[in-house]
Amino acid sequence: MELSTADSVDEALDELSRRGERCRVLAGGTDVMIQLARREIAPEHLLHVERLGELRAVETDGSTRLGALVTHRDLAVGRLGPGYAAVAESAATVGGLQTQVVGTIGGNVCNASPAADTLPALLVHDAEVTLRSVRGSRTVPLAEFVVGRRVTTRAPDELLTTITLGRPAPRTGDVYLKVGRRSAMEVAIVGLAARLTFDGTGVVTDARIAVASVGPRPLRSVGAETALVGGTGDAESVHAAAKALLQDVDPIDDVRGTADYRRRVIPGLLGRAVRVCAQRAEG
């Protein structure tokens, strides 16, 4: 195995173009180094991109754009500013301080874990990902980029460079809630993000609901969103939304929890998320 450190994005793209599938991109390493140690991956080449300052920027004029190397810690302390509480809350639950200061948002997206905390939060903010290669650049919705358990549509010569989030409308609240056996250092049993926009009379005009750890990949539930729009976050609309959400998920039994348990916690979790969104939309 070899390792090289890229000093610029262009240099990284050249390397990826030459080496393709034989190359593994290494940022903070919190997933890749473990996968190497467990021999789950055995690339010929490690391309270290962690020091590319141009991918650490956060821009909030107009749309919100964050470089792929923005760390979980950056997000947890609120670098995206108000309106993105779900992103901050999800990043704050990715491991502990030691993994948050080096783990990157681009890495969490490309690792595409079914339990990835940040993915539901990015999904409710209509995230799009930009990938660059020597061939050019493309921008796709996150929901179309992560297509299965640990599977993305990233081509071997592409580097994820930027994540773009929608701008929340006025009177919008968002939240990320996570179920685990304890409150720290947990892989989610269920992760749920919500973003609700209300009109002046408290009626939901726009809704986003996304979940993790209840299927091969984190996903949005359009059925749940539709059920919430037009209601006031009342018990009836939350009940209908939970029913729709349960139809969209496909949980399994694993060491952390059973499929049945996952299904049982979803309605209560959704109700809590709706209440928090309503509170935050007022604030």
């Binding site: 903070g28 390493g29 140690a37 490690l46 080096v102």
Partner: peptide, 20 residues
Amino acid sequence: TVLVDGLPVDSCIYSAAATS
């Protein structure tokens, strides 16, 4: 845990080469 440029990092999963 050790400090890399002042930040606490789990050295068991951090690349030695990254500390250059």
